[in-house]
């Protein structure tokens, strides 16, 4: 749905050059929620603004819904009619909402329809319908100043949907909101994604946002995408930084004679009580040291660190059992502090 190839953006000011994007290839499939994460200055904001060409890329191409926007836009610095038409079919939501304080909520939602040349009656009908969709049917005549942050963002989302877009771009849309409001806005985005088949590209610095609603994610660093893929693909990638951030597990063994393994649930197998099955089948006691798990649509996804009694050699069979269940099992690289060291420590104290 959204594809960028070799997207590069270089800012020049007073002879200095700053590379904000350094050859970004992004592929967002139709109907998915795609999250781009990274620290501030990583280039995420420039990236999303390049998708609807609010920012002109220095080189590379952007294709949205099969149309090559970079070719459409031509060379001039100003947006031509073709690019403006294409933009009107791409919704965008902003961190600071960007609602016009001089207009009522309804008039704010009608603005994109005015630009599209929709008649007054039709505009009103559409605006009220959208307000109903985002759960603000009673606020049509209110001004933005009278709304809470979450309500403002709902208006922003309704406005972004006015042009019946197939794609919604979300530029840190929950970063100015408190955790509870963030959850409700993410839920709304998820619902819209499922009800309308909307493709959502969002950028955020909050891992929780990705964890809550994203099907796929990319990690940006210094203007490059360093990791990308579906959440389960990322989980399956050994040493994936994103997976570790999304599903952090920790915990140390409780004794020297233990085997600690990380079990990764890719979200492909249906939910099964694997751990208790393992325990019953081999009659072993298992303790869970740490876990970051989610169940999405009946599929388990996440990571778990468990401790098995005995050395690795004694646990080959139970580990094999876990692998048979379609789980990824890695022996964790953590060691119990050797008793010799502990004795030394005690002596040192004396």
């Amino acid at each position: 749905m959204i594809t960028t190839t070799g997207l590069t953006k270089v800012y020049r000011s007073r002879g200095r050059e700053v590379t904000a994007l350094d050859g970004v290839d992004l592929h967002v499939r139709e109907g998915e929620v795609y999250g781009v994460v990274g620290q501030s200055g990583a280039g995420k904001s420039t990236l999303i603004r390049c998708v609807n060409l609010l920012e002109r890329p220095s080189s590379g191409t952007v294709t949205v819904n099969g149309r090559d926007l970079t070719a459409l836009a031509g060379r001039g610095p100003r947006a031509n009619a073709a690019l403006r038409e294409a933009r009107s079919r791409i919704g965008m939501v902003f961190q600071h909402f960007n609602l016009l304080s001089s207009r009522t909520v309804q008039a704010n939602i009608e603005l994109p329809l005015e630009i599209l040349g929709v008649s007054g009656k039709e505009r009103e009908r559409k605006a009220l319908e959208l307000l109903d969709l985002v759960g603000l049917a009673d606020k049509a005549k209110a001004y933005p100043a009278q709304l809470s942050g979450g309500q403002k963002q709902r208006v922003g989302i309704a406005r972004a949907l006015a042009g019946d877009p197939k794609v919604l771009l979300s530029d840190e849309s929950t970063s100015a909101l408190d955790p509870e409001t963030t959850r409700s806005i993410l839920q709304l985005l998820r619902d819209l994604n499922q009800q309308l088949g909307l493709t959502v590209l969002l950028i955020t610095h909050e891992m929780d946002v990705v964890k809550t609603i994203c099907d796929s994610a990319a990690l940006m660093k210094g203007g490059r995408v360093v990791e990308s893929g579906t959440v389960s693909e990322l989980l399956a990638t050994p040493g994936s930084e994103l997976a570790a951030e999304l599903f952090p597990v920790g915990g140390e063994p409780s004794g020297a004679d233990r085997t600690v393994v990380d079990v990764t649930f890719h979200g492909e197998a249906a939910t099964q009580p694997v751990i208790s099955q393992l325990s019953r089948t081999y009659n072993i006691d298992i303790s869970i040291l740490g876990a970051a798990m989610d169940t999405v649509a009946g599929k388990q996804i996440g990571r778990m660190r468990i401790e098995l009694p005995g050395r690795f050699e004694e646990n080959v069979v139970p580990i094999g059992f876990l692998r048979e269940q379609g789980l990824q099992v890695d022996v964790a690289d953590v060691a119990y502090p050797a008793p010799a060291d502990a004795a030394l420590l005690k002596e040192g104290v004396k």
Partner: peptide
């Protein structure tokens, strides 16, 4: 606020 200008541009609004 320049953000408002960007918002209208993102809707396909011209100068």
């Amino acid at each position: 606020d320049h953000g408002l200008v960007e918002a209208v541009q993102s809707m396909g609004g011209g100068t």
